[in-house]
Design a protein around this nucleic acid. Structure first.
Lengths: 134, 134
DNA sequence: GCGCTTTTGACAATCATTATCATTGTCGGC
DNA sequence: GCCGACAATGATAATGATTGTCAAAAGCGC
């Protein structure tokens, strides 16, 4: 048994996925990223995109969001723990930090005796641009 | 066209689904609820279960959770806005309130000019029982 | 009771994600 | 630089929850 099973090998595909995540701004679904790679002429299988994204997510290098609608969305984000304020219309995402929220979640969990605590939070709304447009 | 299309009719199926939600404690998937109805001898189609749950969720009578894993989980909850502290192992769910979180979310969204704001939050952890067991 | 309208439910369709497995590419040692 | 073991890849099939469809079967108002 070894906890250090970081037997990750460097492959072109992995770099390609990572590169696309660098170039794209908002959240993208796995299928979107796959399509972008295709357009770029990169030969990457859909399966690999999923696997790579999972790996990156596990490594904490990208953020995953599960919006109501069923698709997983991925995005390269700044390091550290933070949450997202997402526009329902255009998908623009703003990174926000809420130390108060973190501590509140931990505190509440501790009060109930829960350990090994994590949490998820997303804020949805309509951004100024989309609000004026409609 | 009428915005007041709350033309809900009372049917046995709807009562049955609601009854099961009353009897069950934790979160249940639509398929679980359907199975329970079957065991009870109620004749309810899977489609109807989904539709009924959606309706109840829209009406705010039940809560929906989308845990990482893909299934929608439903639960009858106390009225009003609140969040859940869920055990990863046994699924026990505690309702928690966090006025601070609500106001924080609203404030942050407002700062960025977002309107029509909503948010989702789930706290995951291991409950005392499961923690001592392992 | 009657008729209109909603609801139901069996089944098919959808669609993102995961599993499969033979082939290919990397890495580390020689 | 070359080789062999082993992880990574990727085309395809499988999975499985959710949604769509539409004829038949209840509700509700009168």
């Amino acid at each position: 048994m070894n906890a250090e099973s970081t037997a990750q090998r460097n492959t072109k595909q992995r770099s390609a996925v990572s590169a696309v995540l660098n170039d794209t701004e908002g959240f993208n679904s796995a299928q979107d990223l796959h399509a972008i790679l295709r357009e770029r002429g990169e030969r990457v299988g859909l399966t690999t995109v999923y696997r790579t994204l999972q790996g990156l997510a596990d490594a904490g290098e990208i953020d995953v969001m599960r919006p109501p609608g069923g698709e997983h969305l991925y995005r390269r984000c700044s390091q550290g723990h933070h949450h997202h304020l997402v526009c329902r219309s255009c998908g623009t995402a703003v990174e926000v930090e809420g130390p108060a929220v973190e501590s509140w979640a931990d505190r509440v969990a501790a009060q109930h005796g829960f350990v090994d605590v994590s949490h998820t939070m997303e804020i949805f709304g309509t951004c100024p641009e989309c609000a004026t447009k409609r």
